[in-house]
């Protein structure tokens, strides 16, 4: 028994690189050999779906892309799910970006949905692109969008885009959706645009941001939240279009199981080591 405990204690101080390998394998294997796992929508994801579902057809929705390639695996599946939902319900989408690399993300997502839904640029959607200035941009959109955006990403003048007629500030939108990976992002939309002007908004954000945004969701300032990749997979389930996130959930779940197992194991070895150290000290 003592020998067995010693082995357990020794395993507790194993080189961290072995743990990296095991976590890596737990992600890699389900990606190579996909496994279907059941996905059930949480109340927060359901709230996002309900908020979008409640919009009357032809609503004007501002979708802000605040993420880049580094957080693409988490947010991009949400973007696709949200855009598919909005276009299939016949809404008008106004895309903006608070991050410079958000332009690439918006162009990629909108090009794909344009093909899927046979959309017409300038009629069904417009991409206003990126403007630097963080919260000042949000404040600018809230106050006077035309001062901030004089042209779109394709170089068209704002006045020449038909769906921009009557759009002057945040009050002209029916809903705001923030696809956010950090600062500037959801928080800034809440603080400088949607709260002061009472415009309903919702968000899809990275897992790391969830605890920061949840108080706004609990307070009703944000209508639901898509939390990281699981949030994206849940939304795909709700709109009934399985996408990228659904396929990745098995890898995510297996990796979590391995990490939880390591945390439990690490704690057990910690307590065993502490007990054995105390015992050795007593013997001396």
């Amino acid at each position: 028994m003592k020998q067995f405990l010693n082995i357990i204690i020794k395993l507790g101080s194993i080189d961290r690189r072995y743990i990296f390998i095991l976590v890596g394998l737990s992600v890699l294997i389900p990606l190579i050999r996909p496994i279907d796992i059941p996905i059930r929508a949480t109340s927060q994801s359901q709230d996002v779906f309900n908020a979008l579902d409640a919009l009357t057809p032809n609503s004007k929705v501002l979708v802000s892309f605040e993420y880049g390639p580094s957080t693409k695996p988490e947010i991009h599946p949400m973007s696709m799910g949200i855009l598919r939902k909005l276009f299939s319900d016949g809404h008008k989408v106004y895309a903006t970006a608070l991050w410079p690399d958000g332009i690439f993300m918006s162009v990629e997502a909108l090009n794909q949905t344009e093909e899927e839904f046979s959309l017409e640029y300038g009629v069904d959607y417009v991409n206003l692109g990126f403007r630097p200035g963080n919260e000042a941009v949000v404040k600018g959109v809230a106050a006077d969008i035309r001062t901030l955006y004089t042209s779109d990403t394709r170089g068209n003048h704002i006045d020449d885009i038909s769906m921009m007629d009557g759009i002057n500030n945040i009050n002209d939108f029916d809903f705001v959706f923030s696809l956010s990976a950090g600062y500037p992002g959801t928080k800034e939309w809440v603080q400088y645009a949607c709260d002061p002007h009472d415009i309903p908004m919702s968000t899809g954000c990275t897992s790391i941001q969830v605890t920061e945004v949840l108080p706004y969701v609990e307070a009703g300032q944000v209508k639901g939240i898509l939390a990281g990749m699981p949030g994206a997979a849940e939304f795909e389930k709700l709109v009934n279009i399985p996408g990228e996130a659904t396929g990745m959930m098995a890898a995510q779940s297996f990796a979590h199981l391995v990490i939880v197992a390591f945390i439990i194991f690490g704690n057990i070895t910690y307590f065993l080591k502490r007990r054995s150290d105390k015992k050795n000290l007593g013997e001396k």
Partner: peptide, 23 residues
């Protein structure tokens, strides 16, 4: 604890993204 959990979840998602590309 919740923040840590979400942070781990986020990092794993990014790892999945890179692995997907490598595959």
């Amino acid at each position: 604890g919740a923040s840590f959990g979400f942070a781990v979840m986020g990092r794993i998602s990014l790892l999945i993204g890179r692995f997907n590309d490598l595959i």
